[in-house]
Design a protein around this nucleic acid. Structure first.
Lengths: 243, 243
DNA sequence: AGTGAAAATTTTGTACACAAATAGGCATTC
DNA sequence: GAATGCCTATTTGTGTACAAAATTTTCACT
């Protein structure tokens, strides 16, 4: 059975200490952020094990971690499925995210050094490029990573953790409740505006922009959509392709 | 090897569907909330397995869950230890808790039905009884459960999850930074005052009381600033400087 | 004694085998 | 024809064996 390929889409921390289950975790996490894994999709342990070339033990650890972040639901004796929040749950998640993002924004305005704000800008440029190139999946993921980077800059690990869980859940919500025709991402224009407000240390404006930003997500939660179960193998073809 | 005894100290949900690793998780979690497990304590997988009469597989799952809640630290290839937050980490945790508790308090004032507020009162009475009887451990745990119950009443599962992690981490902080002579718990008087404010739907007062409540925890952090004499790194942090 | 390397022991990481639970098909019954 | 119960195939849950890593002990040498 072949090993996992080293490459992974998301940010690989400078310390290359990622273990096998980290890699599996990140692949699934990214697939969800990029909306390649639809809400409700069943995650079979053995299939995943074959796809990633590891035993079920490793898959199980990754799933358990995703389960704790509420990104997937672990049903005892019935396996894991990608979470598909109800409308009410979705509203609760967005509310929680408002709470978290407000705190993060205030911390960043107060404390983040200018150098990090520049890094933020680069991330948004990358995001913009992806949408320009038509790589919608990566664009959506980078949009989420923008918010994670903000939380990182807030320099508060508990909030960062919370944010990670919320951002990925919001990705699921967008995937589930968005009409196919509409533009599906929080627009990078708004990210640029936010960066400017932060750079000018205008806390009130920054928070206002952030809340406005979240209004867009919440606004979409009025109409329904039907998720379609996908084939695990095709979603993770990037893993198999490396051998 | 005998099985796990069914009884467990904490709230047993009405659906008795707790599995073995839930039970192990709850036992360790309670031990931390009751401050019977000191920060820094090594958690050996095999020893725990013998104690609870289950295999390492189960222990591992419980530890992984505790690790995700940041209550213990999982060091790759080196096992798990009860978290012992540094002063800076402690402040970050308390800050995050302010964010969470503020949101929770506002939600509860706005939405919680009177019947649940009555249940809260009973919980505080129980807490008071424990301290009166000298059962400090249970008192501290119930004090934490008061705050968890509040988060439950906020009817927002993501916030409840976050709160669970923060309350237990705060328990660790108190265990670690408190001077032995001082009274060690958030006093139930304050809990009673808070309940009254909630009952009167006085949001501003309720939030003010809650923040005041958290001030007490934070106040202890500034007085005492030398946690563990064995941590060379913090002692020589000035030498290492900012990387 | 003090130092450092190497062996021995302990502890964690991973795979796998088997047990338990679940889901789906099929026949039987009303 | 729908409902019920049994049987089988699949999937998840748990224990255990062995591999890999870290820790401790031993011991030779200065």
């Amino acid at each position: 059975m072949n090993q996992i390929s080293e490459k992974v889409a998301s940010t690989k921390g400078p310390k290359g200490k990622r273990t096998q289950d980290d890699i599996v975790y990140e692949h699934i996490f990214d697939a969800i952020l990029e909306q390649r894994l639809a809400p409700g999709t069943k995650l079979n342990e053995e299939s995943l094990g074959e796809i990633f070339g590891v035993s079920r033990t490793i898959i199980r650890r990754a799933l358990s971690r995703l389960g704790h972040e509420q990104v997937i639901v672990l049903r005892p004796n019935r396996g894991a499925v990608v979470a598909s929040p109800t409308l009410e749950e979705a509203k609760q998640i967005v509310f929680a995210r408002r709470v978290c993002e407000r705190a993060v924004t205030e911390l960043v305005v107060d404390n983040a050094p200018a150098s990090q704000i520049e890094q933020l800008k680069k991330l948004v440029q990358e995001e913009q490029d992806c949408f320009a190139k038509g790589d919608k999946g990566s664009g959506i993921r980078l949009s989420g990573e923008f918010h994670l980077k903000l939380a990182e800059m807030a320099n508060n690990p508990p909030l960062l953790n919370f944010q990670r869980s919320l951002v990925s859940q919001c990705s699921l919500i967008i995937a589930q409740y968005e009409k196919n025709g509409e533009k599906s991402h929080c627009s990078y224009d708004e990210h640029y505006e936010l960066i400017d407000a932060i750079k000018n240390r205008d806390k009130e404006l920054a928070v206002k922009l952030m809340m406005h930003h979240l209004d867009h997500i919440e606004h979409k939660l009025s109409l329904d959509d039907e998720p379609s179960p996908d084939d695990l193998r095709s979603i993770f073809s990037n893993v198999l392709g490396e051998k």
